[in-house]
């Protein structure tokens, strides 16, 4: 283990990968809290799948495979996907779950179709695109990490700026509307931040698993506190630790891809929280119930 920690500092590639996934985990952990609290956990899944056609289109139109270009494309169709979900879910007989499933599969199918059309061309540089499916954290270089940090940092900054508004929106949207806040605008802004978190992470963990990084750290953090501020900070920390841990594991055990390793680490954090959180955890709940039973029984004997 100490050897692993040392490698994390000394090995250039591993350090980059770990830093990248940690940044990503922190950003998506913090932003994911709002998705989880607002019961929109699965929107991230739709957004990440909807990003695929954008990535392919961006590359097709610009001919560039530079990360910022692809991320911009991913962001545009990802946001379109989110907009489509909310437009559809408002209609009669189309519930949110249907809208999500429809958008994610159709957008993803469109991306897949485009991708194969592109790949049909005799061009060697196309192969890199399908790494977006599962991500390619191992290919992260220092500049990628800095970009991710900068974009994620802006997103977190916006979150901090509109903290009070977002908080009110998440817990009592009606009150926010009555108080005169531009609820729709805030809603769009929060969705936009979610899209940012998703596209920042795509490169590292891929389309399929990205949604988990929004949900698992937030759901884990939720078990430890009832305060939003603490939850967001805790989710960011859990996300960052899962990211670094996943990267370390996959760096040391060859054959384990980074994305899945990060997701499994975050899920493990959730399971631990679910079981052992002092106030809500299943184990402590069971212990408290047992103690109460004992007390009641002894009181019953005494009387």
């Amino acid at each position: 283990m100490s050897e692993a920690l040392q490698l994390l500092w000394t090995d250039y590639t591993l350090r980059n990968v770990a830093a990248g996934t940690a940044v990503l985990g922190a950003v998506s952990g913090a932003l994911g809290c709002f998705a989880v609290l607002r019961r929109r956990s699965l929107l991230g899944d739709a957004v990440s799948h909807a990003a695929l056609p954008g990535i392919v289109l961006a590359w097709l139109l610009t001919g560039s495979k530079a990360a910022p270009v692809l991320v911009a494309g991913a962001g545009i169709t990802g946001w379109l996907g989110a907009a489509a979900v909310s437009a559809l879910a408002r209609r009669e007989r189309i519930r949110e779950d249907t809208a999500l499933a429809l958008v994610l599969s159709v957008f993803f199918g469109a991306g897949l179709m485009l991708l194969t059309v592109v790949q049909g061309r005799p061009d060697a540089s196309q192969a890199g695109l399908d790494t977006f499916l599962f991500g390619q954290a191992a290919a992260l270089v220092e500049r990628d990490v800095l970009t991710m940090g900068a974009v994620g940092g802006v997103a977190v900054l916006v979150l901090a700026l509109f903290w009070k508004e977002f908080k009110l929106l998440s817990f009592d949207a009606d009150a926010a509307a009555v108080a005169g806040y531009p609820v729709k605008l805030l809603d769009h802004l929060l969705t936009l931040l979610l899209v940012v978190a998703v596209v920042v992470g795509l490169q590292a963990v891929g389309v399929v698993l990205m949604s988990s990084l929004l949900i698992a750290p937030a759901a884990a953090a939720r078990q430890w506190t009832n305060r939003l501020g603490r939850m967001v900070v805790l989710a960011a920390v859990i996300g960052a630790m899962s990211g670094a841990l996943g990267a370390a594991v996959s760096g040391l055990a060859p054959g384990i891809p980074t994305g899945p390793a990060v997701v499994l680490a975050a899920t493990a954090a959730f399971v631990v929280s679910l079981l052992f959180s002092p106030s809500r955890g299943l184990v402590s709940r069971r212990l408290r119930a047992a103690a109460r039973d004992r007390r009641l029984r002894s009181e019953g004997d005494a009387s």
Binding site: S212, I215, A219, Q223, T267, L282
Partner: peptide, 28 residues
Amino acid sequence: RTKLVKEDTAIGLVFPALFAFGVVLVSR
């Protein structure tokens, strides 16, 4: 049923974890 997470969160927690597990199994 634990009431500690909502339905959407539960779905979003379970299937990526299982899928990730499957991917690890495949590549291992």
